[in-house]
Design a protein around this nucleic acid. Structure first.
Length: 629
DNA sequence: CTAGGGTTAG
């Protein structure tokens, strides 16, 4: 076998060795470990990756401890991004340990666990399992490592089964404070971008199991709590994550920097500023020193809640600025419609000696995209390899396609898709379809829609966009046909809703929502506002009405869009002239966008609206997006 | 230098 390591030394007589492991009687090797898997042979490249120090260490009659240390070193470079060679490297260490008789004995648990952990870190839970099965003794560390291996490979069922076996009488080990983080690590992120509803559901079930066990056992270990919080976030259960955080505070467990970072991020994505501020204040009172991640998460929280100035303040007060700080700031400025400032931060960043990465360039191009600066965006994209040495990834191409298509260059967008070195995925086609709808390109739109109906038949947006193309052209029969197709196939779109914070509470509004206690006053205020802005020049744009219904009914259906209701409520409840921050789960409707401009004019209020794409700042009749979004 | 833990940007 072409092993790079030196041959095993001639066996020392047990009595001559002071190392208890050497002194241990050699056992017959278990079948699972005596013959390393065949893939070990392929990795001659491991030769070059073995550090010289490691080679010396091994040449000098290595002990099992040395093997453990080396396996650990190989592990840390193995988990993402994985280097293909590290699997071969660890496997060779494994093989050598076997040859030297270091594995298989009752006292070999630590080394075997190191081997197991190595395979687990290489996303090879089956190899880890083989080691596990061959071990005469296992402890909690062993079990936890294997559970983590399955969990991180996305094989939750097996991880859960192991967790249950571990709890069972007779396994001689009990779950400890490392077990929950192992079971929950990476939960809900399985498969990266291709996560399905089914996998999300499965992840939530695992989470529930863990929650039950967690409630039974309890723990004062902050990392156990923080892994629970992260698990909720990854499973898109933000409210649950906050509840865990509150429970943690109630039990007087001091949140760590990890916890604060995660909770800031939760408040940001939920768009709950008051809560975010309170958590921020809590972190200051608790004397938790802010680390880089906390600064960056805090910055993003303020930006996500619509407070770009506060985000900027956090950035300026950050004394441990890193690349992510700049990326976050550039992203925030782009989403709020400040491409020049984003570019300025890019220059500052390089001046400060920080190397821009893929995300930096993506955020910059995206900031140009938001602002409709197609020329600048293309220039940045075309020069990124030469000037920054960064090769465009899929997301960069997707951003450029989005930029071209939305600006009306649908032909160029299609050309880019055809020429890019990646296969376009459904979400990108959906963006182009949206642009076809916006620019009334019916032929291209139809072609893309047909393709999307195949690719993702249950994505409602595709039907709605195609329907809108027909509706805008007044082709009601065809629009209606698309609608009924949706019904036949049982496709439903997410309900639109908007929310606004007032005092300590968040108020949520659906379309035509009449569930609010002061609903009558809200509708009365909205009717009054509509009359006022009509006098000021607002004309309802009924092309945004969903159905082919009578004109006055259409107007009415527009009035009670959720974002208008949220504004009418905020206008009643907040001191006059004050800024209102409103969030929407979907894209803002074109008519509402127009109405908001008039609302800002007639009420003298600044309105900051976050939709699922970006921020709109309405002031004195104008929007920061310049009506391009 | 005997094995095991959770964040932040798009």
């Amino acid at each position: 076998m072409p092993l790079l390591l030196p041959p095993p030394p001639t066996p020392t007589p047990p009595c001559a060795s002071r190392d208890p492991l050497h002194a241990a009687p050699r056992r017959s090797r278990s079948p699972s470990t005596s013959r390393p898997p065949s893939r070990h042979r392929r990795t001659a490249s491991a030769r070059s990756t073995l550090p010289a120090a490691a080679r010396d260490l091994l040449a000098d009659d290595p002990t099992p401890r040395a093997f453990s240390a080396l396996l650990k070193a190989a592990s840390s470079s193995a988990s993402p991004p994985r280097r293909p060679s590290s699997l071969g490297l660890g496997a060779q260490l494994h093989a050598q340990a076997v040859v030297r008789g270091f594995l298989g004995g009752d006292d070999s648990t630590i080394l075997a666990t190191a081997v197991l952990s190595f395979y687990a870190s290489c996303r090879e839970p089956d190899l880890a399992r083989k080691v596990f099965d061959g071990m005469p003794r296992r402890n909690a560390v062993t079990w936890n490592a294997l559970i983590k291996g399955y969990a991180q490979a996305g094989r939750r069922e097996e991880a859960i089964l192991l967790f249950r076996d571990m709890k069972r009488e007779g396994s001689h080990v009990a779950p400890d404070r490392y077990t929950f983080p192992a079971l929950l690590s990476g939960i809900g992120r399985e498969g990266g971008s291709g996560r399905t509803l089914v996998s999300l559901y499965a992840a939530r079930r695992t989470l529930e199991d863990a929650k039950v066990a967690f409630d039974q056992v309890g723990s004062s270990d902050p990392i156990v709590w923080s892994s629970m919080i992260s698990a909720y976030v990854n499973c898109e259960e933000e409210e649950g994550a906050l509840l865990i955080f509150f429970n943690m505070l109630c039990q007087d467990i001091k949140p760590t920097q990890f916890v604060y970072s995660t909770v800031f991020s939760v408040c940001g994505r939920m768009g709950i500023l008051e809560m975010g501020k309170q958590v921020h204040a809590h972190s200051l009172k608790s004397n938790t020193e802010k680390d880089a991640a906390m600064f960056n998460a805090l910055l993003t929280m303020y930006s996500d809640c619509g407070c770009i100035n506060d985000a900027q303040k956090v950035f300026s007060s950050n004394d441990c600025v890193n690349v992510i700080s700049y990326n976050s700031m550039i992203s925030a400025l782009g989403q709020h419609g400040y491409p020049k400032e984003a570019l300025e931060h890019f220059r500052q960043m390089k001046f400060a000696g920080l190397m821009p990465d893929e995300v930096t360039l993506l955020n910059l191009i995206s900031s140009f995209n938001h602002a409709g600066l197609v020329h600048e965006g293309l220039q940045m994209f075309n020069s990124m390899v030469d000037i920054e040495g960064i090769k465009p990834m899929y997301q960069h191409y997707a951003c450029v396609v989005d930029m071209l298509a939305r600006s009306g260059e649908i032909g160029k967008a299609m050309k880019t898709i055809n020429e890019m070195p990646f296969e376009a995925e459904a979400p990108l086609w959906r963006i182009v379809l949206g642009a076809c709808s916006k620019h009334r390109d019916i032929e291209t739109g139809k072609r893309i829609a047909e393709m999307l109906f195949e690719m993702e038949p249950y994505e409602a947006t595709n039907y709605i966009l195609l329907g809108n193309i027909y509706a805008r052209l007044g082709r009601w029969t065809e629009a209606e046909k698309v609608r009924s197709l949706m019904g036949e196939r049982g496709v439903y779109k997410d309900d639109a809703f908007s929310w606004i914070e007032m005092g300590q509470r968040t108020y949520r509004f659906g379309v035509d929502d009449r569930s609010h206690p002061i609903s009558r006053e809200i509708y009365r205020n909205l009717d009054r506002l509509i009359s006022t802005i009509k006098v000021a020049g607002y004309v309802p744009d009924i092309s945004f009405a969903a159905h082919n219904i009578q004109r006055d009914r259409k107007e009415e259906s527009l009035y009670y869009h959720c974002e208008k209701l949220a504004f009418a409520f905020g206008d009643l409840a907040a001191p006059s002239g004050g800024t209102l921050r409103i969030m929407k789960n979907l894209r803002v409707c074109g008519d509402c966008h127009c109405a908001y401009k008039y609302f800002s004019l007639v009420t003298g209020r600044e309105i900051i609206l976050r939709d699922n794409q970006r921020f709109h700042h309405f002031n004195s009749g104008f929007c920061s997006c310049g009506d391009y979004w």
